[in-house]
Amino acid sequence: MALALSDHSSIVTITPPPSRRRRFVVSKIGRIGGISLIATYLSIIVVIPVTALVLHGIGFGISTNGAGPALWRWSWHLSPMVFIHALQLPGAVHAIGLSLWLSLLVAFINCVMGLAIAWVLVRDEFPGKRILDGFIDLPFALPTIVAGVVFVFLYGPASPLHVDLFETWIGLMVALLFVTIPFSVRAVQPVLEHLDRADEEAALTLGAGPVRRYLTVVLPSLAPAALAGFGLAFARAIGEFGSIALISGGVARTTPGSAYVFMLTGSFQWAQAAAVSTALLLLSLVVLITSSVASRRISKRLGS
């Protein structure tokens, strides 16, 4: 539409914008509708299932008399012994314990290695660095079962390297180190990239060596990010199933929590599966909260 500003009559012909009030009402209806749709979607996909899982896990039961979801027909009961009995199943405590210490170990190793890898990717220069950088995301993009198949071929009974890690905790650890490495590196890398070099240069002029500079100047600034990466890697490791499903061999000694839950579903022990899942959820919640609180404390102390 050509606008001739000198001719005032042509401006009048432009469609006027809807009145403020009408637009406000329309956008409000749209907003409430959108929020309700998303809330409904999230309820169906996430909130109702996870709530049902935890309630089943702690032995909360609902009986409905007759058909239909009608509220007035419900009666409920709570039997926390379901939770305790499930943990008394053979292998349950062992599986949860194995998941816990293995995930802590893996998250710790990759936290340290993640700091080193991020340093090399950001501060070091060598041919092929860009390729190495893209390489870090591969374990994240690769479907977990593909990783599982590769590990059982590479480190299984027919290993071409003659290292048989089948049904050993080292085999589990190698698989978990593989799948968690992107989380540890990518948590630290952007922070290191944006780090102001002035403090390091100041330390250099004051005569601090490379190790001392790193420990006293760089590491404290990276610590919150590294801790966040630790939490992410831990959460991934404790929930991981596909990549360890084959190399664990399905024996009790090397069955971590998630694989144990899967075994329970195979024998239709759903209430017990819910109870063990609830225990695993609680554990990862505790570690995630601890690492995020620690991370926030450190950054607050640095800020002041």
């Binding site: 999230l42 996909i45 996430v46 909130v47 109702i48 299932p49 996870v50 709530t51 049902a52 899982l53 089943h56 959460a235 404790i238 929930g239 991981e240 199933f241 596909g242 929590g257 998630s258 694989a259 839950v261 899967f262 579903t265 759903w270 599966a273 819910a274 899942s277 695993l280 959820l281 990862s284 995630l288």
Partner: peptide, 22 residues
């Protein structure tokens, strides 16, 4: 927060949760 729950917990647990709910 709800958006992040499915990737923060084990996929096995999500599967069990869906079975128990539906």
């Amino acid at each position: 927060l709800c958006f992040d729950i499915p990737v923060a917990v084990s996929p096995v647990i999500i599967g069990v949760a869906l079975v128990l709910a539906y």
